[in-house]
């Protein structure tokens, strides 16, 4: 059976990259980026999550069906947040009672 094994070096390098990105998250949180602080924080977190998924969780050796399953979770999470916010942010558009 073709079991893929990740080298210790790769695991340690990814770990230190994750620690570095954590330091970057903290540093950037104290910079005033206006309304961009939250998107940058989420972008860095997503980069860290992708490193964990692809390397630590060995998704780069994953079957297409496994990728599909994981992506469906992200898709429905974005739908959940996106449609909730679309509702909340558009409620004031019509000046009618019971909005």
């Amino acid at each position: 059976m073709a079991s893929h094994v990740t080298s210790r070096l790769v695991l340690f390098v990814i770990f230190f990259v994750l620690v570095g990105l954590t330091a970057l998250t903290v540093w950037v949180a104290y910079q005033d980026l206006g309304s961009w602080n939250a998107p940058v924080a989420v972008a860095i977190a997503t980069l860290k999550a992708m490193l964990v998924i692809v390397i630590f969780m060995e998704m780069r050796f994953g079957q297409p069906l496994t990728w599909f399953a994981g992506a469906s979770g992200v898709l429905f999470l974005l739908l959940l947040i996106g449609m909730t916010m679309a509702d909340a942010m558009s409620r004031g558009w019509l000046g009618v009672p019971g909005k």
Partner: peptide, 14 residues
């Protein structure tokens, strides 16, 4: 936790 840390602890620090 990678998401929880910046979203809960670090918002509005600047």
């Amino acid at each position: 936790w990678i998401y929880l840390f910046p979203l809960l602890y670090l918002l509005g620090r600047h």
